[in-house]
Simulated scan of single mutants.
Amino acid sequence: MGQTLWFASRATGLVALVLLTTSLALGVAMAGRAAGPRWPRFALGAVHRNLSLTTLMFLAVHVSTAVIDPYAKIGWLDAVVPFVSVYQPFWLGLGAVALDLMLAVLVTSVVRPRVGPRLWRAVHWSGYLCWPVAVVHGLGIGGKDSELGWVIALNAFCALVVLFAVFWRLRTRGTDPDHEARQATGAFASVRGR
């Protein structure tokens, strides 16, 4: 197999980063109630969900090729238990943390009706932490690949997309048309609950 598994692992890791970045940006936009006549909220939700699942598929190939590749001697347990690997334990451990956070978001999203909105939202917020941990994992474990101009540009572009999405979200906070209705409903519910 030569370096085929190594190239597959690197490539799917970078594609997973781009997909995770896009999914995170869409999630931030949805949290800000972004929508329009061409992209209603349900369409944004469907794209976000499908991008997240596609990210997980690329991540599965990324992890599988890294484990199957005999060079680093990474075990399946190393991929999910942080900081126990013999091969670059810190950098691989960050990858395991990012994977575990993504899996937690996936599991709570699948069982969302059973866990309730508060727990789902709290776990879903860990998606914000997953992204920088994944970026640092890729930069740290990438070795010489991380120093390539196009890889640096790709990471910088992903960072700019996330920063723009978060900046936009903070600027539009409370300006969506449903904000006042949600606030009134929340106030009404708290008064009614007394």
Rank of each mutant, 00 (worst) to 15 (best):
T12K: 04
G93T: 04
P113W: 11
A153F: 11
G27Q: 07
S126A: 13
P177L: 12
R121Q: 11
A43Q: 11
W131T: 02
D145N: 11
K73R: 14
A153G: 02
F42C: 00
A153C: 03
W76Q: 01
N50R: 10
G27L: 09
R112Y: 05
Q183P: 02
R182W: 11
W91T: 08
F83Y: 10
P89S: 09
S190I: 10
V97R: 03
F58N: 01
A184K: 14
A34L: 14
R173G: 12
A16I: 08
V110R: 09
V111P: 13
P177Y: 01
G36V: 07
R169W: 06
L5G: 00
T185H: 12
A79M: 09
P117L: 03
L148E: 13
P40E: 05
M30I: 14
P117C: 00
G32W: 05
A98M: 10
L17H: 07
Y71F: 15
A46N: 15
V80L: 15
G142Y: 05
P177F: 04
F83I: 04
S64I: 01
F42I: 13
H62C: 09
R173I: 06
G32C: 04
G2F: 11
A25H: 06
G116Y: 06
R118N: 08
A181I: 13
G13Y: 07
P37E: 14
W131K: 03
F157K: 01
L160Q: 02
Y128Q: 02
G138W: 01
A156L: 15
V191F: 09
G186R: 11
W76E: 11
Q3G: 15
A8L: 15
G142S: 06
R10H: 14
L154V: 05
H137L: 04
K73P: 00
V47K: 03
G149H: 05
L154I: 02
V97S: 03
W91L: 10
M30P: 11
R33W: 15
L26Y: 13
V63F: 03
L5E: 08
W125R: 12
A29I: 05
A66P: 15
L51V: 07
W150Y: 15
V161C: 01
Y87K: 01
A189E: 14
D145Y: 12
V191G: 00
A34C: 10
V61G: 09
L160M: 14
E147V: 06
F90A: 08
R194M: 13
P89K: 08
Y128A: 09
R118C: 01
W39C: 04
V110K: 07
W120C: 01
L24N: 07
P70M: 04
Q88M: 14
T175F: 03
R171E: 08
L106C: 10
A165F: 03
P177G: 00
W131L: 10
V84L: 04
A79T: 07
Y71Q: 08
I152H: 02
C158Y: 07
K144T: 11
T12L: 00
A156M: 13
G27W: 08
G116P: 08
G2C: 05
A35K: 13
P70H: 03
T22K: 00
P82W: 00
A153D: 05
L20N: 12
I74K: 01
A8E: 11
V84G: 01
C158S: 09
V151D: 12
D100N: 14
